[in-house]
Simulated assay, not measured.
Amino acid sequence: MGTRIPFIRPDGKTAEGYLSLAGKGNVPGVVVIQEWWGLQDQIKGLCDRFALLGYDALAPDLYAGTIVPYHDAEAAAREMNSLNFLEAADQLVRGAAQFLLRSSPKVAVSGFCMGGAVAILAASRAPEFSAVVPFYGLPPDTVAKPADVKVPLQGHFANTDDYITPEKVDAFEAGLKAAGKTFEIYRYDASHAFMNEQRSVHDRHCAELAWARTAAFLKTHIG
């Protein structure tokens, strides 16, 4: 449904990503941020699903073509740890938003796992976004605090998660509330990465519920 395209970063360099179009003009856009596995087909499929909802969707390739097999968590960790998260947010994610804003009135950002953290970071730093939807990902307070988030947020988290634990989610939610932010936090009786239908941790019921909530939230905040 979509295609790989080049786009220009704010610093003038060229990046690439997967673009899926809604099929009509002047529609809102969504920047979709990958898991630590790279720009997998599953993330491309999410872009296609956003397009079916009526949004132009662009997933910037944060790993510049590297895709890690799902069984190789060690390699995924190496790729993630070598990623400059601030550069990813300020250049790749923001550049993707600027590309979409050429034809979209408003743009949101959504990310999964590592991408959830990058999405919150981008929503705390880039003025292009109007909403953020992170899935089971949080940035460290040292780079982005809950009070730094500039736009309405809807977060989706798993109750059985060894990475983004319920305690971390509780602290993040408390920070958003204390800062007077507009937000919704949802917790699911599922495991980390429950949205990924290509993995054994996928939970269809929770994934469908989270997707319906995401669609309603985007409709409210970007149209």
Rank of each mutant, 00 (worst) to 15 (best):
residue 128 E to V: 09
residue 35 E to K: 04
residue 210 A to I: 05
residue 142 T to Q: 08
residue 2 G to M: 08
residue 162 D to S: 15
residue 137 G to K: 03
residue 57 A to M: 07
residue 107 V to F: 06
residue 3 T to G: 07
residue 102 R to Q: 10
residue 87 E to C: 00
residue 25 G to S: 12
residue 165 T to I: 05
residue 45 G to S: 14
residue 207 A to D: 14
residue 30 V to I: 06
residue 89 A to L: 09
residue 179 A to H: 05
residue 184 E to S: 09
residue 163 Y to K: 01
residue 55 Y to C: 03
residue 42 Q to I: 12
residue 2 G to I: 10
residue 14 T to L: 01
residue 59 A to H: 06
residue 55 Y to A: 01
residue 72 D to H: 04
residue 18 Y to D: 05
residue 43 I to E: 11
residue 156 H to V: 07
residue 118 V to G: 07
residue 155 G to S: 03
residue 83 L to I: 07
residue 71 H to I: 09
residue 134 P to A: 13
residue 180 G to R: 04
residue 11 D to S: 09
residue 169 V to C: 11
residue 130 S to R: 15
residue 149 V to D: 12
residue 74 E to G: 15
residue 4 R to H: 03
residue 138 L to V: 13
residue 148 D to I: 14
residue 121 L to N: 05
residue 26 N to G: 00
residue 159 N to I: 07
residue 62 L to F: 08
residue 193 A to Q: 01
residue 100 L to P: 11
residue 207 A to W: 09
residue 203 D to S: 03
residue 80 M to W: 11
residue 71 H to V: 13
residue 32 V to K: 00
residue 152 P to E: 10
residue 180 G to S: 06
residue 7 F to I: 11
residue 36 W to P: 09
residue 16 E to A: 14
residue 63 Y to G: 08
residue 79 E to L: 14
residue 11 D to E: 06
residue 209 L to M: 13
residue 121 L to H: 04
residue 41 D to L: 06
residue 41 D to W: 05
residue 93 V to P: 15
residue 215 A to W: 01
residue 118 V to A: 03
residue 61 D to V: 11
residue 71 H to R: 13
residue 77 A to E: 15
residue 150 K to M: 14
residue 119 A to G: 09
residue 35 E to F: 11
residue 133 V to C: 15
residue 130 S to Q: 15
residue 105 P to M: 06
residue 47 C to G: 13
residue 128 E to P: 04
residue 10 P to C: 04
residue 124 S to P: 04
residue 174 A to H: 08
residue 130 S to A: 15
residue 15 A to E: 08
residue 221 H to P: 12
residue 164 I to W: 05
residue 107 V to I: 06
residue 14 T to P: 00
residue 150 K to T: 15
residue 91 Q to S: 12
residue 67 I to C: 02
residue 48 D to Y: 05
residue 171 A to G: 01
residue 85 F to H: 15
residue 139 P to M: 01
residue 214 T to N: 09
residue 33 I to R: 02
residue 8 I to N: 02
residue 121 L to C: 00
residue 35 E to G: 08
residue 73 A to C: 02
residue 108 A to R: 03
residue 36 W to F: 14
residue 177 K to W: 11
residue 119 A to C: 01
